[in-house]
Computed example of a mutant assay.
Amino acid sequence: MVMGEAQLRERMQHPVIQERLVVTPLLSDAQVKGASIDVRLGTDFILMKRSAAGPIDPMAMRTGVLDYQERARVEVGEKMILHPNQLVLGVTLEFIQVPRDLMAYVIGRSSWGRLGLMVATAVMVSPGYRGSLTLELANLADTPVYLYPGTRVAQLVFHQVDGASSAYAGAGKYTGPVGPEFSKLSWDEDWQAIQRMQPEEM
């Protein structure tokens, strides 16, 4: 069941901190409306290096992540250009705390989508998540588009979780960030097994 505005506001004022939905700071009361909460684009970004040597190797990410990325900061009032077919990682201005009985989907705002901007290709926010949300921002249009930190770029739609949830409990790969985080695909246990199967280089 999708939570409506009244339910969202009630959970955001819940007296028990473990059951309270936290989305802060809210710069406008209008960010909570209908059945969603609007979130704004933060000031920190991760850009993929166009000069990276060779393809991205998910297995080498733990030690070679700086070979593929560089960080940038764009203050509120400034703008950053996103070129066609370019992917950058942004972050929400807001810090999110999701109770264990809720989960959320991140959905790009249609006003941005009509300009060719795809937001949050990884769309689920797990029960118990705490931190700012990394946003995958991709320009699918044929022309560049400017990104403005501080503007509403996506919305969170919350659902009640049926049954008990073990949640993140602080052990998730992306728990507690306050800035954008690069892929931690290499942290998956699957990669350790795959690595053992690879033939040794002569």
Rank of each mutant, 00 (worst) to 15 (best):
V125S: 05
A120L: 06
L21S: 15
D190H: 02
G113V: 02
A141K: 01
F45C: 08
M3R: 05
H83R: 15
T43I: 08
T92H: 03
L147C: 11
E70F: 00
R20N: 10
A122E: 02
R20P: 10
A6N: 11
G176V: 13
L137G: 06
E189V: 08
G116D: 05
A72K: 11
R71T: 15
N139K: 14
Q18M: 12
A138V: 15
D190V: 01
H159A: 10
V91E: 01
I37M: 10
L27A: 09
S36A: 14
I46N: 09
L66Y: 09
L21C: 15
V16A: 13
D38R: 14
H83V: 13
L47V: 07
G170L: 03
L117C: 12
A122H: 03
A138E: 11
G54R: 08
V22S: 07
T24M: 04
M48L: 04
Y129N: 03
G34P: 10
G77K: 12
V88T: 07
V23H: 04
V157I: 14
V88I: 15
M202F: 07
T92W: 04
S126H: 15
V98E: 10
R114G: 11
H14G: 04
A141L: 01
Q69P: 00
V145W: 05
G131Q: 04
V123D: 12
V161P: 07
V178L: 13
S126R: 13
Y146K: 05
Y146V: 08
V65A: 10
E181N: 03
E10G: 07
V106W: 00
T43Q: 14
R11F: 13
R196Y: 00
S165I: 01
R196E: 05
A104Y: 05
V22C: 07
K49P: 04
Y68L: 11
K49R: 15
G163Q: 02
M124Q: 13
I194G: 02
G108R: 03
D162L: 04
K33T: 15
V2P: 04
E70S: 00
P25Q: 02
L93R: 14
H159K: 12
S28H: 08
R114F: 12
S36G: 06
Y146E: 15
S51E: 06
